[in-house]
Design a binder for these strands. Structure first.
Lengths: 243, 243
DNA sequence: TTGACATATATTCAGTATAGATATATGTAG
DNA sequence: CTACATATATCTATACTGAATATATGTCAA
């Protein structure tokens, strides 16, 4: 910004500022499908619709800190994989006033997802249905536990679609999948996560090879228990030293 | 955001709002290297340092519209490939006041880059030096025409590094490279753009094959002229119909 | 105690893509 | 007309991928 613009701004009444909020896509895998945690709006506007948890950004609070605070306040969660997704700034996205929303993607393990549901009973777990393949695609649907399409508030359907595109895009060149898994996991669990996000089956031996060759998987020597068949080895995610 | 938070906001004096700005990374290829257009700051803070062109977002202006306006006002340009990059929201990124900046990446053809320099003589073309390979990396440097490292204002060095990471990441699965080329171009020019952005040489026959197999290149039957050797065929970018 | 079973893990093989090297084509310049 | 620089085409060895097959290892039920 240049100085002329800035000087105008020194007078707080010179022009109006938009409000800035963060909205969280709390995403996990549930019953083999991607799922998101939603809150029901009980007030105008969009009363009765389902919304992503969010909150305004404090004047002395960074965006990342605001996202972490919303995670704490709305999902009762101290830590999660949090990454900025996209900033939504259409003028009329909120009919009340100008609100710019910085969307964050929060990735939850299955345990964290269920813990959030217990801690905050007003949260609804909604399965995400992605009706397109690959990474280029239009809207997605959020389904109620009864498998009915949910009406989302504001532009939150668009935010959700952006989250799924981002997640699919990053899946095979980044380590995001591990943010959805517990500390110890089997290769089958890792593949299940990939398949849930991609919405497609994968070739098992090829998947194993690629994952093991990546150098991110540290075998633990321990094995899963309780299965009615040969138990699989448990692995741990080990961030690459080469990075 | 929930209603409690929102009601607080109905009273404009209840809490302060941050200012929201857009900053543009005006990027082109110059002398075979990626280059960015910068403005010298003549006022406190960071007086004498070089900054990305930017401007505040109007209360009735979408983020994309604000970016397009800055492109027009600061670079004298009606159109360019514009995409949102990342939103920077550290509390102390501007010492004067709280300003959240939504960074945009603007891709300019070589002609557009030079036209901007002519239209706005205060713009400085700075070569970008990326001291890392691949897509994961730290800071980058902006070099003056005399090849000296420029001191950038605010967190703009970080924004520039984010832009280069994004560009490298998108290069081979998206069509961004064509935004840096004129309407008609040869395969050699396309490869030059890729090599400039990646900072590395590429195998020529393999590059040609991959590009031609993608289905984005429409041969025109016309050939370049004026070269002291066999002229190459001119191609046109044709967005895939399958997408 | 033993064999059926379901899954993990290992191996193999063919088809495909890729990098790199080499060969050929085609314009300008002297 | 020939040298030359580059475009374009062809070839080959290698790596990767998907799919099929074989073997290992636990639980469970007869």
């Amino acid at each position: 910004m240049n100085e002329t613009d800035f000087l105008k701004d020194y007078d707080p009444s010179a022009f109006q500022r938009p409000s800035v909020a963060v909205d969280l896509v709390l995403l996990g895998i549930r019953d083999g499908r991607p799922a998101v945690l939603l809150l029901k709006r009980d007030q105008h506007p969009h009363a009765g619709r389902w919304a992503l948890p969010g909150g305004f950004v404090g004047i002395d609070e960074s965006l990342d800190a605001a996202a972490a605070r919303v995670l704490r306040e709305k999902a009762g969660m101290a830590h999660a994989h949090l990454e900025q997704l996209y900033t939504f700034g259409a003028v009329d996205r909120d009919p009340r006033m100008r609100i710019i929303s910085v969307a964050y993607l929060a990735l939850l393990t299955e345990q964290a997802f269920e813990a959030a549901l217990r801690a905050m009973p007003m949260l609804l777990p909604a399965a995400i249905e992605v009706p397109w393949a690959g990474e280029v695609g239009g809207p997605v649907d959020a389904l109620s536990p009864e498998n009915e399409k949910l009406a989302l508030a504001f532009d939150h359907a668009g935010i959700l679609a952006t989250a799924m595109r981002r997640l699919r895009g990053k899946l095979d060149y980044s380590d995001v999948a591990f943010a959805l898994l517990p500390e110890l996991f089997t290769l089958r669990q890792l593949q299940d996560v990939h398949e849930a996000i991609l919405g497609a089956g994968l070739n098992k031996p090829a998947f194993r090879r690629r994952q093991l060759d990546r150098g991110w998987l540290a075998p633990t020597g321990a094995y899963e228990s309780g299965a009615a068949f040969r138990p699989a080895e448990l692995y741990r995610f080990q961030p690459s030293t080469a990075d």
